[in-house]
Nucleic acid binder design. Structure first.
Lengths: 158, 158
DNA sequence: TACTATTGAGTTGTGCGCAACTGAATTGTG
DNA sequence: CACAATTCAGTTGCGCACAACTCAATAGTA
């Protein structure tokens, strides 16, 4: 409120606002997590597991590396996650014959069957966001641009 | 592209888009995490620890419950986090005399000293977002509204 | 005043996310 | 061909997030 040090005040507002952007992002992600947890509990899936299944439903067979590129996750996260999906009977893992280093992940019959039961999950969640198609698209574009800039590293400067 | 089943196609687009909103959110949060990890590593803080310190720097003394309300975290997350901050010497914890159930958390001299070294963290991170004040404010508003709607539960329907 | 219900912190167990590492398979290069 | 460098999965260790629980302190009530 005091006008004695306007520059400092401006900087502090910027900092506070910045803090709140990341914090708001953090909170929105966790709120989404709670909604998905509720929507997915009947299927016995967590949200990251659901993401992996979506990618596999779409592509049928993927290497761990390719799946990691799609989900932006490394093997340290994916290996145990896929192990859990496998022991749940939703997914099969086998070494590639062409390149013994890579492991190919594919959907089992039970995994395909689960897809049917998962059809209304996105609808339920979408309804909860209160966003229409345009609102989602707008927000997604904003977030993707933000992620790209954050990933780009400090060497951009333009 | 085919116009044979426009309704199904519309629905699928909606679902896909919806999926991408949460996924985009997830990715943006993790990208922010990487930036903060880098910016905070000299201070020896994680991002959630940094959030807790920011709240404590601002309020000086807070109960675990109040801190949890500010950060949207429960004791299951906060107790071990505060324990780590305490063993790092940044924070002091003591039972309230008025209500022996609650624990009051306050900043030590070392914690206050750390604040000085943390001043440029938000500036660094803000620069990396590539957003100006208006862009941040806009995004934050969108995210806060989204979080509120997601928190509200399925009983809204309007 | 007793007795029940609630509140506040903490603990345990599970899963995600990431850094750092291991080990085997493959690729590249002399 | 031999040997170093790279690639791919997996493992370990740490911290966060959350559910479900315990336990003590307090508040509410018959």
């Amino acid at each position: 409120m005091t006008a004695t040090q306007p520059t400092t005040t401006d900087a502090e507002n910027l900092l506070r606002l910045e803090h709140q952007v990341c914090f708001a992002l953090h909170n929105a992600t966790r709120a989404f997590g709670a909604v998905y947890r509720d929507a997915l509990k009947d299927l016995g899936l967590t949200y990251p597991q659901y993401l992996a299944m979506m990618a596999l439903w779409e592509h049928d067979e993927l290497s761990v590396k390719r799946l990691g590129e799609l989900l932006r996750l490394d093997s340290g996260t994916l290996s145990p996650l896929l192990k859990r999906l496998e022991s749940a009977g939703l997914v099969k893992r086998e070494r590639s014959a062409l390149d013994e280093r890579s492991v190919l992940v594919s959907v089992t019959a039970a995994g395909t069957a689960l897809r049917e039961r998962a059809t209304d999950v996105p609808l339920t969640v979408a309804a909860r966001t209160g966003l229409d198609r345009e609102g989602m698209s707008e927000l997604r574009t904003l977030l993707d641009r933000l992620t790209d800039r954050l990933d780009a590293g400090p060497a951009q400067e333009c």
